[in-house]
């Protein structure tokens, strides 16, 4: 279980890093506010995971100082595209945690997966991507 939660933590850390970049490239106050809310959500998940892994006496790899992005973020369009990818990555990490967890950890994973799926849908709509949903969020 700790390995899956540590992977979820790594995905949340990557999301926090990415939203820093996404935020500066988005046009419009609405989209930027959306990015700030999303980033705050990922920070909360990160904090909860750090505390939980500590409780489990499991070590998590320290977050790297930088990340290799899948593509360069240069404008509004590429920022939206990265936001969609980030949420898909977070959804995949939490989905993988579901079979490995029980009780409160399972409940956290269920909520986190749904949160990522909802945000991915929001970003797809803003990006004009269709369809805005996928049938099995987080499934590889």
């Amino acid at each position: 279980m700790s390995a899956e939660l540590a992977a979820a933590l790594a995905a949340e850390e990557a999301a926090i890093y990415a939203y820093g970049l996404i935020g500066v490239h988005l046009d419009g106050a609405g989209a930027r506010a959306e990015a700030r809310t999303a980033e705050a959500g990922h920070r909360n998940r990160r904090d909860v995971l750090v505390a939980r892994l500590d409780e489990l006496r499991a070590s998590a790899a320290p977050a790297p100082a930088g990340y290799q992005l899948p593509f360069e973020v240069t404008d509004h369009g590429s920022a939206l595209k990265l936001a969609i990818e980030v949420e898909q990555g977070v959804a995949a990490a939490w989905r993988a945690a579901l079979p490995a967890t029980a009780d409160d950890d399972r409940a956290t994973a269920v909520d986190a997966l749904a949160g990522a799926a909802v945000r991915a849908t929001r970003w797809r709509r803003l990006a004009g991507v269709s369809p805005v949903t996928v049938p099995f969020p987080g499934r590889p």
Binding site: L113, A114, T133, P137
Partner: peptide, 14 residues
């Protein structure tokens, strides 16, 4: 768990 969790998440995204 993964299947049902994904279905719940999909319904939320709907």
């Amino acid at each position: 768990a993964a299947l049902v969790g994904s279905i719940a998440a999909c319904r939320g995204s709907h």
